[in-house]
């Protein structure tokens, strides 16, 4: 296999990712070995608005894209002459942001006569786990949770995905961000809530759990409404809100739903492994609760290291590598697909 890969000349892949507010480029070898992984975060830029402003993000990507690519090649100790293929995030994401990475990827691939492939961002998050855990192989169930997505997949084999359920409204990370903003914890809110909630009693406040019966769909918008109402009630009554306990209770309501559905999905599909992916995979309470729930049923739970949890281009290069190996090529007309679904 090793010899075949080298013979095909598709070993070294440059990955480019600009789907939201991180400008990222990475070099990955043979789909598993990270040679470099550069992420320029725009978090500071968007803090004043408490969330990502698409036009502001797009403008920043234009400024950062070439320096980030240049840095990724330099960190890998190579030049464009050593690159065998280019993989770029095609969607889902913010269209204006996606287009910056796609335009750069196409121009580089065209100028250097390199094969190009478009990658689904969510598939990238799944590959972040494969990059981090060489022993991990399908079949498995994957819970992708971030500020942009909440999706539960069954992955029977490499490159095969069955969506079991997704959120009907807010993403889990979005709900955490919104409540963090209500509590004045700043942006991004997920990590702030996680920190504040450490060791707190999550039962001090009562939040609804939208289990939506036996389905694998999620709904988190009602949770945010409940938080607004509780804060409003406390204000009317002149009661002080215990922020750490409030944060812990809110986080617990989200974690409860995520854990229950992920475990049930794994049981239904008869798999022994669950992976979590996306920015919220860094949430310590989610990891702790899912690991405990899995252990009771003999399920192993995997998550990527912090640098691979959040948006990055190494995961895009890894996913792109397997698609390029399978002969997939994007045309020069490759366009952003903000609502791209995983097939």
């Amino acid at each position: 296999m090793e010899g075949l890969v080298t013979a095909l000349g598709l070993d070294v892949i440059l990955g480019i990712e600009t789907s939201c507010d991180e400008t990222a480029a990475a070099v990955v070898e043979a789909g598993r070995r990270i040679r470099s992984n550069v992420v320029a975060s725009q978090t500071d830029l968007h803090q004043r608005w408490g969330g990502v402003v698409p036009e502001v993000a797009s403008r920043r990507h234009v400024e950062l894209i070439i320096p980030v690519i240049d840095r990724a090649l330099a960190d890998a100790g190579i030049t464009l002459a050593d690159v065998d293929g280019v993989a770029v995030t095609q969607g889902p994401g913010l269209v204006g942001s996606l287009l910056v990475g796609i335009a750069a990827a196409k121009a580089i691939a065209f100028a250097r006569r390199l094969p190009l492939v478009g990658v689904n961002h969510i598939e990238g998050h799944i590959y972040a786990n494969f990059l981090a855990h060489p022993e991990l192989e399908p079949p498995l169930v994957c819970l992708t949770v971030s500020g942009g997505h909440t999706v539960l997949f069954y992955v029977p084999a490499y490159g095969q995905y069955q969506v079991m359920g997704a959120t009907r409204d807010d993403a889990a990370g979005e709900a955490l961000d919104k409540v963090a903003r209500l509590l004045g914890l700043g942006y991004p809110g997920g990590p702030a809530i996680d920190r504040l909630a450490q060791g707190q009693d999550p039962a001090a406040y009562d939040f609804p759990r939208a289990m939506l019966d036996e389905s694998y769909e999620f709904s988190f918008s009602g949770l945010k409404t409940a938080a607004v109402q509780q804060l409003e009630r406390a204000r009317r009554r002149g009661e002080a809100v215990d922020l750490p306990k409030f944060a812990a209770a809110f986080q617990e309501a989200i974690v409860d739903v995520l854990v229950a559905k992920a475990v049930r999905a794994a049981q239904e599909k008869g798999v022994a492994q669950i992976m979590i992916a996306g920015g919220v995979a860094a949430n310590s309470r989610l990891r702790e609760r899912l690991t405990a729930a899995g252990a009771e049923l003999g399920l192993r739970v995997y998550w990527p290291p912090p640098a691979l949890c959040t948006d990055n281009a190494a995961m895009i290069a890894a996913a792109g590598y397997f698609r390029l190996q399978a002969g997939e090529r994007a045309p020069w007309s490759l366009n952003a697909e903000p609502q791209l679904r995983l097939r």
């Binding site: 797009s58 403008r59 990507h61 234009v62 894209i65 070439i66 690519i69 240049d70 464009l80 269209v95 204006g96 287009l99 910056v100 335009a103 750069a104 990827a105 196409k106 121009a107 580089i108 065209f110 100028a111 250097r112």
Partner: peptide
């Protein structure tokens, strides 16, 4: 959006 596509394409061609 149009401007970004042209400018980024030009930058990346120049770089490559």
């Amino acid at each position: 959006t149009g401007l970004r596509i042209g400018v980024v394409t030009a930058k990346a061609l120049s770089y490559a």
